[in-house]
Amino acid sequence: MVDCRKIDQLLSAYIDQEVSPAESRAVRVHLERCSHCRNEYLQLVRTKELFSALEVVDLPLDFHSRFEARLEQSSLANRLLRWLESFKPFVYAGALGLLFGVIGMPLAQGTKVAKVEPFSDLQFLLVEHRRLQQSEPLRQQIPPLITESDLAGKLRPVSVAGVFEQPVTSEITGAGVILVSHHF
């Protein structure tokens, strides 16, 4: 029966209440007189009920610590990689940056200074997760953000201009290592 085929295709949507009033009526009327489709309908209802009744699987207790460890590793690898990448073009800029106490500098992208971040995104996630886990406000340890005006007219190493598609920021930590991070 053609009716059965058409109705069958509507059954799941009918169960989920995702059919139009006209479709709903057509299905209802058909189910009243067709035992085959009614059987199919009830089985699909059962199937949906089963999956809907599955319990929510909780995050493992040590999920955050493992995530933190992973970010730590990524961040470390990221630092090394980016440091190596940035070493050549930034060596002079970095030295000057240290001298002037600049912890961040804008790059290329014309004269537009987009987001200037003292921390890479991975570092941020790490800090955020630590913060969420501990009551101690770790954010206090984060240096204040650099504003655009702080950077106006400051160093602008052009040798890597165009390499990065996204706005790039740099930071200097410890013994003058320059970190370059993509942001967003």
């Binding site: 029966m1 059965c4 085929r5 067709c34 035992s35 085959h36 489709c37 009614r38 059987n39 089985q43």
Partner: peptide, 10 residues
């Protein structure tokens, strides 16, 4: 595609 409706009652 259902040609017939001979099914066991649920």
């Amino acid at each position: 595609y259902y040609e017939d409706s001979e099914f066991t009652k649920m």
